[in-house]
Simulated assay, not measured.
Amino acid sequence: MTDLTALGYTAEHEWVKVDGSVATIGITAYAAAQLGDIVYLDLPAEGTELSGGTVVGEIESTKSVGELFAPVDGTVVETNPAVADSPELVNSDPFGEGWLIKVEFTALPTLLTAAEYAALTGE
């Protein structure tokens, strides 16, 4: 089980888990619930250079299309093949098997704490 207090969060509803110089990124359970049943993900390819705060992908659900923002500057080093085949993993396990991308970051911005994110979403 992922320790949600050990993660950083963005106001755009991404979570970030830092391990050395690599950040694993996904969307929060709150975002997944707001989107509804996720049916397709358009994620950046490995090797893609990301600039923090920019749109880098799309998350399509039965209700709408949401944008995935890059919370960090860096290079995509891995995309999660499991969510490409089974996008519903983002709904069922957003903080575990439903992670989206891993980025070797060059800059790590100040992220929200779990308590600050909970205050933002009213959760």
Rank of each mutant, 00 (worst) to 15 (best):
T121G: 13
V90S: 01
A107V: 05
E104D: 09
V90W: 00
W99Y: 07
Y117C: 13
V103Q: 07
A115N: 14
A119Q: 14
P87C: 00
T113M: 13
A107W: 11
V90T: 02
E123H: 12
V90G: 00
A119D: 15
E97W: 06
L108G: 07
T110Q: 14
L89V: 00
E88G: 11
V103Y: 10
P87T: 03
T113F: 10
V90F: 01
I101F: 08
F105T: 12
A115S: 15
E116N: 10
E104Q: 13
A118L: 12
E88T: 05
E104T: 00
A114S: 15
K102E: 08
V90M: 04
L100P: 08
E88W: 02
G122W: 10
P87N: 02
F95Q: 00
G98P: 12
G98F: 04
G96M: 02
A107L: 14
Y117D: 11
L112A: 08
E116V: 08
E104L: 05
T113H: 14
G98W: 04
W99Q: 02
D93W: 00
L111F: 12
A115I: 14
P87W: 02
T113N: 09
T106R: 13
L112C: 05
L120T: 10
P109H: 03
F95L: 04
A118T: 15
E123Q: 11
L108Y: 10
E88V: 09
A119E: 15
L112P: 05
N91S: 02
T106W: 06
W99F: 09
P109D: 00
E88D: 04
A115T: 15
T110I: 08
L112I: 09
L111Y: 06
L100A: 07
L112Q: 12
A118I: 11
A107C: 03
E123V: 10
F105I: 07
W99R: 06
P94F: 01
T121C: 12
E116S: 12
T113E: 08
E123W: 09
F95M: 04
I101M: 13
S92F: 01
K102N: 11
L111P: 08
E97S: 15
T106K: 03
D93M: 01
D93T: 04
F95C: 00
W99C: 04
G122H: 04
L100I: 03
D93R: 05
L100H: 03
L89E: 01
A119I: 06
T113K: 09
E116R: 11
A119Y: 14
L100G: 04
T106I: 09
E97R: 13
E123A: 12
L100K: 00
L111I: 03
T121L: 06
G98S: 10
G96S: 11
T106L: 01
L89I: 00
V103L: 08
P87Q: 01
G98R: 07
P94L: 03
G98Y: 08
I101N: 07
L111T: 02
E97G: 05
I101T: 10
